[in-house]
Simulated scan of single mutants.
Amino acid sequence: MNNTVKIYIAGHQGMVGRALWRALTAKGYSNLIGVSSKEVDLRDQKAVARYIADENPAIIIDAAARVGGILANMNSPYDFLMQNLQIQNNLIDSALQSGVEKFIFLGSSCIYPKLAPQPLKEEYLLTGPLEPTNEGYAIAKIAGVKACEAIRKQYGKDYVSLMPTNLYGTHDNFDLNSSHVLPAMIRKFHEAKENNHATVTLWGSGTPLREFLFVDDLAEAVIFALENKLPDSLYNVGSGVDLTIKQLAETIQKIVGHQGEIIWDVSKPDGTPRKLMDTSKMHALGWKHQVPLEAGIQKTYDWFLENINKYKEVKL
């Protein structure tokens, strides 16, 4: 792969996009482009088509999406469905129409059925009902996977979908109304520690099992897909290790230094009982994650502390 190849990172200001930009720059890629949502609204078909036609990138990485935790997905199911369909459809179709030969689509492990066998294999897609709390987001991402698969079949282009497990890391979202479980816990435990080690209330029973991947590991997986022509259209990307939400909470509590009580609000939903990715296809090709969970949480908490002024205005 020529390091001067023009690569458009859609969503370059988000957690994943920033990690991709850092990793690609570190590897010597010098022709990266990105555009803010104020400059080009990715929900606007004409604006996206015009931007891609004008810039003419050789490669597009789609790290742009409307994302959020259980609460956000439950409160805005239509927004999560429609806006993600608009964003990815505009990017994928504009890429095809502009002759982009390589497209990397990033999705989520939530595309798999709620009660699929564990660990989740790529072949389990569309074999059962989805988790209701984030069905809209999942359906949108499934559509993106199928669009890339169809382009490979019909046009022979190297369009590939990577489905990461639960991501976390620097530049994460710590807004308690829209964040995912791990960054939300970091903030809750930190603010409780600052408030004389106050009690922390967490959603659900704490029994569901979840897998987590540091965002820099996903960036390396994307670069692996960038620099190699993968034989299939869909690949899982994860650590291959899971733990209960209760174990996650206790790990974060220890790293943050909170010494108060944890209360589990069982009136709130747990979500899917277990989501562990089978990453054997990517492992067989040569990619494997590198950052252990505790080390990744420590890096994320350190970044949160360095940027804490952003979050002080919004209290628990």
Rank of each mutant, 00 (worst) to 15 (best):
residue 20 L to M: 15
residue 130 L to E: 04
residue 48 V to G: 09
residue 217 D to I: 13
residue 241 V to C: 10
residue 115 L to K: 09
residue 280 S to R: 01
residue 303 W to H: 13
residue 1 M to Y: 09
residue 104 I to N: 02
residue 65 A to G: 03
residue 255 I to D: 09
residue 127 T to N: 09
residue 56 N to S: 13
residue 191 E to S: 11
residue 110 C to I: 14
residue 44 D to F: 06
residue 177 N to P: 08
residue 223 I to P: 04
residue 61 I to L: 11
residue 13 Q to G: 13
residue 217 D to F: 09
residue 239 S to M: 11
residue 66 R to W: 13
residue 103 F to A: 11
residue 294 E to R: 11
residue 281 K to F: 06
residue 265 D to T: 10
residue 96 L to F: 09
residue 2 N to H: 10
residue 195 N to K: 14
residue 111 I to P: 00
residue 207 T to H: 08
residue 160 V to W: 04
residue 216 D to L: 02
residue 190 H to W: 10
residue 159 Y to G: 01
residue 282 M to C: 07
residue 76 S to G: 11
residue 92 I to S: 00
residue 44 D to A: 02
residue 139 I to H: 05
residue 165 T to N: 06
residue 18 R to N: 14
residue 26 A to H: 10
residue 213 L to Y: 14
residue 138 A to W: 08
residue 264 W to Y: 05
residue 265 D to G: 00
residue 87 I to W: 05
residue 305 L to H: 15
residue 66 R to H: 09
residue 201 T to V: 08
residue 267 S to P: 09
residue 93 D to R: 04
residue 316 L to S: 12
residue 103 F to N: 11
residue 186 I to A: 12
residue 10 A to S: 13
residue 177 N to H: 10
residue 302 D to H: 01
residue 19 A to P: 08
residue 1 M to R: 10
residue 42 L to V: 07
residue 54 D to W: 07
residue 313 E to P: 06
residue 204 G to W: 03
residue 153 K to R: 06
residue 102 K to G: 15
residue 183 P to A: 11
residue 18 R to K: 15
residue 282 M to T: 07
residue 100 V to C: 00
residue 91 L to Q: 04
residue 116 A to W: 08
residue 88 Q to R: 08
residue 186 I to V: 15
residue 61 I to W: 07
residue 256 V to D: 03
residue 202 L to D: 00
residue 233 S to K: 01
residue 123 E to M: 09
residue 124 Y to H: 01
residue 79 D to V: 15
residue 262 I to R: 03
residue 195 N to P: 07
residue 36 S to F: 10
residue 240 G to C: 14
residue 270 D to R: 03
residue 67 V to L: 03
residue 307 N to I: 10
residue 61 I to E: 04
residue 105 F to E: 12
residue 129 P to W: 15
residue 46 K to S: 11
residue 214 F to A: 10
residue 304 F to S: 03
residue 146 K to R: 15
residue 192 A to K: 13
residue 61 I to Y: 12
residue 49 A to W: 12
residue 301 Y to F: 13
residue 314 V to L: 12
residue 230 L to Q: 00
residue 270 D to G: 03
residue 307 N to H: 15
residue 33 I to P: 00
residue 31 N to R: 14
residue 125 L to E: 01
residue 110 C to Y: 14
residue 314 V to E: 11
residue 191 E to H: 14
residue 253 Q to Y: 02
residue 52 I to Q: 01
residue 44 D to K: 01
residue 70 I to Q: 09
residue 164 P to M: 11
residue 162 L to K: 00
residue 300 T to Q: 09
residue 91 L to P: 01
residue 108 S to A: 14
residue 118 Q to G: 03
residue 303 W to K: 05
residue 292 P to R: 10
residue 226 L to H: 07
residue 301 Y to I: 07
residue 95 A to W: 00
residue 181 V to S: 13
residue 198 A to D: 14
residue 131 E to H: 08
residue 57 P to A: 10
residue 215 V to T: 06
residue 6 K to S: 06
residue 253 Q to S: 04
residue 77 P to T: 12
residue 126 L to D: 05
residue 257 G to D: 01
residue 172 D to C: 11
residue 65 A to I: 14
